Simulated assay, not measured.
Amino acid sequence: MSAHSLIASPFLGEYLLLHPGDARGVKIKAHHYIELQQATAARDRLPGWLCNVAYARWGLSLTDATADESLLIRAPSPYGHGRASYEVNNGCNWGCDHCVYGRKRHEGLAWPAREKLLHILRDAGVLWIELGGGECTIDRHFPETYALAYDLGMMVEVLTNGSTLARPRMLDLLTTRRPYRITMSVYGATETTWDAFTNRRGSFRAFLRGLHAAHEAGLPISLSVVITGKNAHEAAGMRDLAKRHASRVREYTHMSPTFAGEHEPLAQQAPEYLHNRTPFTGCDAGHTSLNVSPFGLATVCKVSRDHPIPLLKEGVAGLSRLGGIADQALQRHSGCTGCTLQKSCTTCMPLVTLYRKANAPRDRYCQWS
Rank of each mutant, 00 (worst) to 15 (best):
306 D>C: 11
306 D>H: 15
307 H>Y: 15
308 P>C: 09
308 P>Y: 10
308 P>G: 12
311 L>W: 09
311 L>E: 10
313 K>Y: 11
313 K>N: 08
313 K>S: 11
315 G>W: 07
315 G>E: 06
315 G>P: 13
316 V>L: 04
318 G>M: 05
319 L>E: 02
320 S>N: 11
320 S>R: 10
320 S>G: 04
321 R>L: 04
322 L>T: 02
323 G>M: 03
324 G>P: 06
324 G>C: 13
325 I>Y: 09
327 D>I: 01
327 D>A: 09
328 Q>F: 06
329 A>I: 00
329 A>Q: 00
329 A>M: 05
330 L>W: 14
331 Q>C: 06
331 Q>R: 15
331 Q>V: 10
331 Q>Y: 14
332 R>L: 11
332 R>Y: 15
333 H>M: 03
333 H>W: 11
333 H>A: 08
333 H>S: 15
338 G>Y: 14
338 G>K: 11
341 L>D: 12
343 K>S: 12
344 S>F: 10
345 C>I: 02
345 C>N: 13
348 C>M: 10
349 M>A: 09
349 M>L: 04
350 P>H: 00
352 V>F: 13
352 V>K: 08
357 K>A: 15
357 K>W: 08
358 A>C: 03
360 A>K: 02
360 A>I: 00
361 P>L: 07
361 P>R: 02
361 P>K: 04
